[in-house]
Design a protein around this nucleic acid. Structure first.
Lengths: 249, 249
DNA sequence: AAGAGGTAATTGCATATGCAATTAGATCGC
DNA sequence: GCGATCTAATTGCATATGCAATTACCTCTT
């Protein structure tokens, strides 16, 4: 919680001062130098440290608070926020949550796992470099005992070394990664595909049946973390989102 | 473009002044009193009209600009922005754009149209009230001559009376609605379904082939505008989105 | 030890002031 | 007219100042 040795805020001289401060602190948060719970120096301290006026520092902090990276309270001060678990998009990041929100019992089973350098076929399918060590996992998620989604995932071990010693029995890989790694960008692709015979058998559906395929890749500051293919029996699933023309107005 | 008789900004006395100003202007924009292109009074004018300091007015306007509702330029002033065509999600609102972004030639054809009270079956499928008058359209969109997506749509004529006199030959219904109606909320559902025989024939694919189904309903302030089912041959399409845990960081 | 009350740290908000940057529109010179 | 130049309107940014609101923490009383 406390700053024993807090990495310093460094300005880069590009653009308005308030924005330099904002970006500097944002980067410290995003790259993990200031993990969630870290207390941010009070406005006075930053003001002296940076040689800016309080209002300028304030402006940067207010904006960061609006963006959700920090939490501010009078008298208590400012701390780095935990990534919002309630973010609309994030819902689909946690399969246990997704299942439980449907009021069903969740289970998962790791069907296979291999660590090492990817085969040519695997590298191709997930857009990997051959040289890099990855964990390759296939996991089946069940809702009330029935197959819910088939997950095939690679984890970049260079980015998440701890994954090598984790067996994912307690927590499925997606959720484990959410709490054991940092990510700053994710890319989704959604498409419909017919079920391959092997996949169909695991999902207990007919081969060729329409399935929803979600492919997601996740990075932290350009370093790839993980890539996953989620195959949902299409007839049983819909993804719903709500928005307005200017965002969530 | 100009304010012949601009509806006035009215504060409600609730909360900080800068936020009252922000909400007041936001509401004028969202409810259509200040349509896109309207020029917003300069900071000086608002300052006098509202009895607030320039910095306070400034703060409200800066925030609205960051939210994308207004556009500001030095000397030229501030105008109400057009709803952002570049919004990631919005891309899929315009099929012509979607096709042209792929570098293909766009065409569309209205295959059928019926205006009147919906049949029981139709009301059921789109969640309509039986009493309400709607236009019911089936449109096929083509890319480079090949079927791209099959659109089935209902338009609530009470909300968009002008739709009754439009034949949608020039502009397909989705795009026409974008420029001829206001909307504040949309809901998407994405799922995978096998192609029905009729639909498969129109899309020139095999019956039962996996398709991506996007169902979208659109409202303006709780009043339904339109509902649409877009059926994409799944193997040919992917929808891609990108985001970070704190939004578009 | 427990509760009451006071103090001060910290953020939130508003104002006033001044200057910089941009550029639409006016003016000038030819 | 037409291009060059000037002027001033408008937004962008930073600072200094002052007060309000919240509340962690200290002190005092019993």
């Amino acid at each position: 919680m406390n700053q024993t040795q807090l990495a310093a805020v460094k300005l880069d001289g590009a653009g308005p001062i308030y924005d330099q401060i904002r970006r500097a602190i944002r980067d410290l948060v995003l790259n993990g130098s200031w993990p969630p719970g870290t207390s941010v120096p009070p406005e006075h301290a930053l003001m002296e440290q940076l040689g800016a006026s309080r209002m300028t520092v304030h402006r940067a902090l207010v904006q960061l608070a609006r963006e959700g990276l920090i939490t501010r309270r009078r008298r208590s001060g400012t701390i780095v926020a935990s990534p919002p678990a309630s973010h609309a998009m994030l819902d689909i990041l946690s399969i246990p949550q997704e299942v439980e929100r449907l009021g069903q019992r969740y289970e998962h089973e790791v069907l296979s796992r291999e660590d090492g350098r990817p085969s040519a076929e695997l590298a191709m399918r997930f857009g990997l470099k051959r040289g890099e060590r990855v964990a390759h996992l296939v996991t089946l998620h069940r809702a009330d005992g029935k197959p819910h989604v088939l997950e095939e995932r690679v984890i970049h071990l260079a980015a998440v070394p701890a994954a090598a010693d984790e067996d994912f029995r307690e927590t499925p890989p997606g959720d484990w990664l959410l709490s054991n790694s940092l990510w700053s960008q994710a890319e989704h692709a959604i498409s419909a595909v017919p079920a391959e015979p092997d996949d169909a058998r695991l999902l207990a559906i007919e081969a060729g049946e329409a399935c929803l395929l979600i492919e997601r890749r996740t990075w932290n500051q350009d370093a790839p973390i993980t890539a996953v293919r989620l195959l949902y029996p299409g007839t049983r699933h819909r993804f719903v989102g709500r928005f307005g023309p200017y965002g969530q107005v």
